[in-house]
């Protein structure tokens, strides 16, 4: 399999403190990885290091086989799209369509190709009916979907969402999660997704969960494997999804980790 991202022996100091000291991680092409950790665990810093917004003190980062250096950074950024936490800080256009067009102008896409790209990207995130709307009239969840469309229009191989749902209400959060699932269904192996979050219901959607704390890799595995380590999660300032927290308190427990729907089935009379 192709590696989308390989991080080898990464070191990074901030304010004279080692945030990363010999950190290793690799992400397969087409994987959906949730990077989780409490506030200040280093997860956002890692994302910034990958796209070269900040520079590591040592170690290597390869993106699709290309080493991240001063010379390659623009090339690598062209392959990675990022969506940040605050929906209000990511708009430049006067309308939704203009906003998506901004990125396309930057890559000097011929203007006759733009309308189709804009339409496709907005369609993918379910915002095609909002093309002419002014961004400030949108809800938080809608704004984040437009931010995602702006990134998608550029055809990235990797999208990193850095706590993109943290500022949204429950409804907005749910629409983003659905959009990400649709995206994964549509693009499959063509798109590598990294979601940085401390919301475990969001992390549960990923193929793989990587837990970091103080710049160290704590757990790495599929959601059911990671969520079966309730003590480790709690020790690192994280919670399990509701079903996991409930299971941890049951006197009679299922043999393996069950998500909410499975746990309800396991508890129901038809299972006895």
């Amino acid at each position: 399999m192709t590696k989308a991202i390989t991080i080898n022996n990464l070191t990074y100091q901030y304010d004279d403190q080692d945030l990363f000291d010999g950190f290793n991680l690799s992400v397969e092409a087409g994987e959906w990885v949730a990077l989780v950790g409490h506030n200040g665990s280093g997860k956002s810093t890692l994302a910034k290091l990958i796209v070269g917004l900040i520079v590591a003190n040592g170690g290597d980062i390869d993106v699709f086989g290309e080493r991240l250096t001063v010379d390659s950074v623009n090339d690598i950024r062209a392959q990675i799209g990022m969506v940040f936490q605050n929906p209000d800080n990511q708009f430049v256009g006067a309308t939704v369509a203009d906003d998506v067009a901004f990125g396309l102008e930057n890559i000097e896409l011929p203007s006759d190709e733009m309308p189709q790209r804009i339409d496709e990207a907005l369609h993918t995130v379910g915002m095609e009916n909002f093309k002419e709307r002014e961004p400030h009239t949108l809800s938080g969840g809608q704004k984040q979907r437009v931010a995602l469309a702006s990134v998608l229009a550029l055809g990235p191989k990797i999208i990193i969402l850095d706590e993109a749902t943290a500022m949204l209400d429950p409804e907005g959060r749910a629409t983003i999660m659905t959009t990400l699932q649709n995206l994964k269904a549509q693009f499959g192996a063509e798109l590598t997704l990294i979601t940085i979050t401390h919301d475990m219901d969001e992390a549960a959607l990923a193929d793989r969960i990587v837990v970091i704390n103080d710049g160290r890799l704590i757990l790495d595995g599929s959601p059911d494997v990671v969520f079966s380590k309730s003590q480790t999660m709690h020790d690192n300032g994280l919670e399990l999804p509701f079903a996991g927290e409930l299971t941890a308190r049951l006197t009679v427990k299922p043999e393996k980790y069950l998500d909410e729907r499975e746990l309800i089935h396991w508890l129901s009379p038809s299972n006895k």
């Binding site: 506030n39 943290a166 500022m167 300032g237």
Partner: peptide
């Protein structure tokens, strides 16, 4: 509490 991690 919006946007805070579980500990926060």
């Amino acid at each position: 509490a919006a946007g805070l991690d579980p500990k926060g």
